[in-house]
Design a protein around this nucleic acid. Sequence first.
DNA 1: TAAAAGCGTTCAATAATGCGGAACGCCTTT
DNA 2: AAAGGCGTTCCGCATTATTGAACGCTTTTA
Lengths: 251, 251
Amino acid sequence: MSDDSTVKSLAKALSVLECFSVEQPELGISEIARMLGLQKSTVYNILSTFQKCGYLTQNPDNSKYALSLKVLHLGYIVSSHHGLRDLMLPYLTAIARETKEVCYFGILDEGEVLYIEATYPSMQQQTRNILGERAPLYCTGLGKAMLAYLPPEEMEAILSRPMRAFTGYTLTDPAALRHQMEEVRQNGYAVDNMEHEFGIRCVAVPLFGTGGRVRAAVSVSGPSPRFDPETVIRHAALIKRILGPVQHQLQ
Amino acid sequence: MSDDSTVKSLAKALSVLECFSVEQPELGISEIARMLGLQKSTVYNILSTFQKCGYLTQNPDNSKYALSLKVLHLGYIVSSHHGLRDLMLPYLTAIARETKEVCYFGILDEGEVLYIEATYPSMQQQTRNILGERAPLYCTGLGKAMLAYLPPEEMEAILSRPMRAFTGYTLTDPAALRHQMEEVRQNGYAVDNMEHEFGIRCVAVPLFGTGGRVRAAVSVSGPSPRFDPETVIRHAALIKRILGPVQHQLQ
DNA sequence: TAAAAGCGTTCAATAATGCGGAACGCCTTT
DNA sequence: AAAGGCGTTCCGCATTATTGAACGCTTTTA
């Protein structure tokens, strides 16, 4: 579009790929053509190419298309390269087991939290899958743990953007958040008090990469009644202790 | 290529994507051009399109390209759609914890095992990342657990293909394997006695989807001295017990 | 120190090919 | 029976992906 070194048919094909989401994992040709304002035959060509190459499968029942396991394989190459999953999973498992709460691992990516991994304390305790999803920094435990340790100008850049109130508890005032970030740095952990999802509290601890830059964070979260002030402090200490060996191992 | 409904530039771009692997997660332009026999400038256009769309990142140090986190997100859409990861992870965690061995979850895909998930009993116990990789059915615990329950003609099709001996213990004789598959069906679990990797033993239990077709398997594996006959029986029973609630929940 | 070879990147012209539009068969809905 | 939805097929033209050489640049070689 803008540059001439862009393979336009590829860019178009990738925009087709991006129509698939967790909410809409199966799509038909006309559906996609409508979403993107493309010709049906164009979408057909793109989809059948993806299918021939193994990246999409067609459901024989409704003839709709969905992302295939080959895409999953590409994802594994990424996480293996970044080395995060293999590095973190054992620690996350231990944290979930010892706190008896769901444990999340997220990284800082383009000014947002990207959820990478989740572990559960028991077979019963399951939550909605948010892996691969993104969330703002200013209203999540993971996000605030990272926001507090960003270079001042980057933190200000994020606080100066408009903020959405997800619940009645969401802080959207830059000054209040700036003050809370000061507290986070003093405590070494961040707390999300139902700011992103009503009824859910969360304790999060940041992780730093080489060079001391904040890169990721680990949290436990659950129903607010289980997260009284003492428990929050205990969970924070436990996460810090377990994550001790892994600090500064990130690239 | 063969068909005219193929968007050739897309197929070419996807073949570029497939150059990236766990072993080679970072590639340069000339490198890829050589691998595929393409013009450098062609590869450049493809790579910079992927980059503009967010699927590749360029390492500023060596200017090589690597798959980005956006690819990971696509992977999450797949696993969320298939629902396997969220369904299985808590059980796998429990199995790793109770057996104190590494636990793998793999599915049957195109006549091979595709490793989907791994859980670890402790923070120390880590192994090479094989998630997303594939392995033959005839010489792995997960594979044999599934092979034994395939429809006879599919099993024969796989046994009739040439088999590679990965170690001195690998069974490559169809008759011997056929007999062993009989045993697997009697026991309800399969054992890999260093047939894929020397020194590693493995116990695996199959999982079935709706319609009774075998779909996946769960295993624990570790150093052969820890896997004496009694332990193998105990682990198999434990896996079966923990997986009880999940049987026939797969789609 | 100089030359050579590697890299990623740029550019123009050319030849290939992706795309638009209409029509097909099939199904469900009206 | 008709109308409208779907995925699929086809063809000609105009868009565009590819070519191949050249550009700076760094690294390796002499």
